[in-house]
């Protein structure tokens, strides 16, 4: 397994997951959103928490099998949360996942370039 030390890409995911978590927490407690207290938002809160932990772990671990698996799981998390955001009609959550996806792909590209060299 090559190195996943992709710098800004990982921090981009960390930032997106913190943003997503904040949005989901706001949605969960704000009646005007129409999705407060819902199982769907609770699911997103958990997903954002896991993404944050995974992204930090990848940033710290840098490389290895565990980092690789976590990196793959982050992608699933991004896709799943984006879909949840679509059905929760939360464009801000979807926006946060776009940022996370950019970070993930940047990480992938940078890692690939480093490993190639």
């Amino acid at each position: 397994m090559g190195s996943l030390s992709c710098g800004r890409g990982t921090w981009c995911i960390v930032l997106a997951s913190i943003t997503g978590l904040a949005i989901a927490l706001y949605d969960y407690v704000t009646p005007e959103t129409g999705i407060d207290q819902s199982g769907g938002v609770l699911l997103v809160i958990v997903a954002m928490g896991l993404m944050l932990c995974a992204a930090l772990s990848v940033a710290l671990l840098g490389s290895g099998l565990v980092a690789g698996i976590l990196f793959f799981l982050i992608l699933l998390d991004i896709v799943g949360t984006a879909i949840a955001g679509y059905f929760l009609e939360s464009p801000m959550l979807m926006g946060a996942m776009v940022i996370a996806a950019i970070g993930w792909f940047r990480c992938l590209v940078v890692s690939a370039q480093r490993n190639w060299q």
Binding site: S38, A84, F87
Partner: peptide, 8 residues
Amino acid sequence: VQQWGFYM
């Protein structure tokens, strides 16, 4: 329809 917060 809304189920678990998700809009159909």
